[in-house]
């Protein structure tokens, strides 16, 4: 049993070392990707800067909280971690708000320790999401096809489904995605004023 635990700790240490090595060896392109990803995610989190998202992502990766699946590029793994960090931000915010409401004597409708399972929506998260969706609409306001694609993505549609829904050819769709990517990169790398 003890040797089993030692082996697991050694495996965890090796996994952490592999992640640290991969992060330190990130190419310039991957570093730019990291900033663009962190900035995109932070844009939807009130009071959070992209540097905070990036810092938290690296620290969590190195803490061994999440396993780096074999064969997955490190940048994909870190991008996936950022998504989880954003979810965690909202869970934590909601939990803290419920505790404050409870402490102020207002009847809490859901126990703080079970708040993650509460069926009702989080109004603050909803408001932030509406705001961010409006920011994205404004970003692509000049591009009618891009706006259609965003609407399709909002509904969880695939590329093929979006093309069918809006009668877009493959070329029109691909060209719009290229324009969207360039706009997105420009805003997330040069500056996207909060």
């Amino acid at each position: 049993m003890q040797s089993h635990n030692v082996n697991r700790n050694e495996e965890a240490d090796e996994a952490t070392a592999a992640i640290a090595h991969a992060i330190q060896a990130l190419s310039e392109g991957d570093l730019l990707r990291l900033k663009a990803l962190a900035r995109l995610r932070a844009r939807s989190l009130p009071g959070i800067e992209w540097a905070d998202v990036l810092n938290e992502t690296i620290m969590r990766a190195l803490s061994g909280t999440r396993r780096w699946p074999p064969g997955v590029p490190i940048i994909s793994f870190l991008a996936w971690s950022m998504r989880s960090i954003c979810d965690e931000f909202w869970r934590r915010t909601r939990r803290e708000r419920r505790v404050i409401v409870g402490a102020e004597g207002t009847r809490a409708t859901w126990p703080p320790d079970q708040v993650d399972e509460a069926p009702d929506a989080d109004p603050e998260r909803t408001a932030a999401a509406v705001q961010m969706l409006a920011v994205l609409d404004a970003l692509f306001a000049e591009d009618e096809i891009a706006l259609k694609i965003i609407t399709g993505l909002e509904d969880g549609l695939s590329a093929a489904e979006i093309r069918v829904r809006y009668g877009l050819s493959e070329t029109e769709y691909d060209s719009a995605r290229k324009r969207m990517r360039r706009t997105l990169l420009r805003h997330n790398l040069r500056g996207w004023e909060r």
């Binding site: 939807s44 940048i75 993505l153 990517r181 997105l184």
Partner: peptide, 12 residues
């Protein structure tokens, strides 16, 4: 969440 996941993949 759908939109950001997709745009993030674009960045990757």
């Amino acid at each position: 969440d759908h939109v950001l996941a997709n745009l993030a993949q674009d960045i990757v």
